[in-house]
């Protein structure tokens, strides 16, 4: 069990998560937002695996695999939505998709 301390891993995970979150908040294209979401998820995964390794238990790894599965299905749905939007010849800009405004 050699290698850097768990803190480093967590720092990288937090960094990844923040990059993803910023991407979600700032970018307008739904495609990029989906990508950023993936980055956020992977940040979380990294944290999970780091903890799993740190404590020597398998639960974190299993959880990470579950998150990947969920992420895959989420991408399917998200991309499907994007394809549906572009099929209707709408602009791919989340700020324009605001029909649900109260």
């Amino acid at each position: 069990m050699r290698g850097p301390d768990v803190v480093w891993y967590l720092c990288v995970a937090a960094f990844l998560f923040s990059i993803g979150a910023l991407g979600v908040l700032i970018r307008r294209s739904p495609l990029i937002i989906l990508l950023s979401l993936e980055i956020m998820l992977n940040g979380a995964n990294l944290a999970l695996i780091a903890f799993a390794r740190h404590y020597g238990q398998g639960a974190g790894q299993i959880f990470a695999i579950t998150v990947m599965a969920v992420a895959a299905s989420e991408v399917v749905v998200g991309l499907g939505l994007i394809v549906a939007i572009s099929r209707r010849h709408l602009e791919l800009d989340v700020d324009k998709l605001s029909t649900l405004r109260g």
Binding site: A21, V24, L25, V94, D95, L97, S98, T99, G102
Partner: peptide
């Protein structure tokens, strides 16, 4: 009044959550 919270902008929701 409450309906003003619902802007329809996904980013504001995400920001609110974050």
């Amino acid at each position: 009044d409450t309906s003003r919270i619902q802007t329809g902008l996904v980013r504001t929701y995400a920001f609110a959550i974050a």
